[in-house]
Design a binder for these strands. Sequence first.
RNA 1: CGGGGCGUGGCGCAGCGGUAGCGCACUUGGUUUGGGACCAAGGGGUCGCGAGUUCGAAUCUCGCCGCUCCGACCA
Length: 568
Amino acid sequence: MRQTALFWRTLREDPADADLPSHRLLLRAGLAQRFASGIYALTPLGLMAERRIEGLVREELGRAGAQEVRLPFVQPLEIWQRSGRVDQDLPELVRLRDRRGEELALALTAEEAMTELVRRQGVQASQLPLLLTQTGPKFRDELRPRGGLLRLREFSMQDAYSFDLDRDGLDESFARVAAAYRRIFRRLEIDVREVAATSGMMGGSGAIEFQLPLPSGEDEIVACAACGYLANREAARRRPRATAGQVEQELRFVETPGATSIDALAAALDCTARDTLKAVFYDRAGTTVMALVTGDRQVEEAKLEAALGGPLRPLGAEEAAARGLVVGYAGPVALTLPGPLVLVLDEEARGAETLVCGANREGWHLAGVRPGRDFTWQVVADIAKVAAGDACPHCGAALAVERSLELGHIFRLGTRYPERLGLVVQGSDNVARPLWMGSYGIGITRLLAAVIEAHHDERGIVWPGAAAPYTAHLLTLGEEAEALEIADELENISGGQILWDDRSVTAGVKFQDADLLGLPWRLTVGRRSLAQGGVEVRRRSDGETRIVPRAELGNLLSSLLAGDARQG
RNA sequence: CGGGGCGUGGCGCAGCGGUAGCGCACUUGGUUUGGGACCAAGGGGUCGCGAGUUCGAAUCUCGCCGCUCCGACCA
């Protein structure tokens, strides 16, 4: 491809609003353009890179036995209603109405649609295990898109779904896809960590996330350097600390005017946050949930949801007050509300000697509160957020918390969707049973950004061979007849598979742009290289340079292109 | 949803009451050509939108919209 004809341009300066390397480089190198927050267009070079990643993912899933289908991007809302997901507050789901008033939804994932496809067509036991996949647009109306292509509202994702007769089959399918994912990341030269995860809005259990450690990532992972324990913070466990609290032994009222925060309370009573009991309120399907953790802890909502088996909504101050809670002074002792109430106590707080908590009376707290003696609860569970320095649940060493970017997520869903949508298969015993389902997602557009986050330097992108839009960038310097002849020759033998900078600009401009775009190989031909005996071949990743005589160019090019194909 | 910052040619920015400018990019001609060349001549902007103040608004006031970063249980 000749650069003078390519729809492409680079920017000499960094775009003002791009902070992250991938965002900056995608814009500067002219690979993407923003249309709206979280909505981007890709230019030819950007799309070529995305397509390479997509093709690689498709290839590996194919090796794992996946068959590709196409599901609708605009889906009838009805299937989302039947699965029950519409009922659980899903603000990311964009709904719309057609001119006849029929309700539609934009795909944010496709558990429903894929289950529905299999149900409509029917499936026989001989076709199992079944692994179906699609690649296509997704739309999630995210609260805060960020970082260019790192967190988009509209993006391309490859999602796959497995269907098996039983749990063992699901485990095998799950393992097969996990292996495919590992190959994908290895080929893209992205060093991911496999992390235990929660299943979030998908439902199900036994999930793994593929995470790239990145300071600008939006997830937090908990890591144990000693034993290798890794988990998303939302799913992470910790070894409970030894007994906390014990400011006083006997229950008594203390007057604490204005002490409506844990900090203020601890200051007023001259104790630590850990000596207090914090109450946080949620709604769970009409029931008020009071979650109780020691004052220095935070409630991990994902773990609380898992403990209660369903989605929660935090209560605002007014709403909490309307339900009879004395906001700022609420506690579990002798608490009665007009409506239904569930008390959930963190396992660590349960082991405390005595604690200070709200007295359900404006301006008063209770000290010397002993769990079990002075109040009871309905659920005890690990519901506190893990903090850096907590003890590893396996080995007890200090845990670290690191920022990280989720690139892939695989779930064992179980029978939930097939049950709700009526997908069953008849076994040899003539009994129809719901299938066991797994769900697997890998963000293609995000991978494009992640590859750049993982592979760049101060000059620009450094494409891994498997994702590069072109393998080689040919620069002709000057108008030497022989140089142009060689360029023609290279273009011909590559079948147009190299990018040729044929502009009449200075050498510096070409070198800068070539570094910025970062194709794996740079071929330079000009008066100087010819004097040295041929074409200068330079590898972008490490700058290794050599001169290749004209006669060997055919071999060189086919080995570069083949090497790239082997990797990618 | 809360807080900060920002909206002026394609990009980066200046101008902050007197009717819009710089650098880069772009077009044309010429000289150049191994790390973002030079000379000359050009084209391109409802200054985010709306209302108000004023003789006069990119500039002041109010409202709205958009973008971006941080945060979003902490009782």
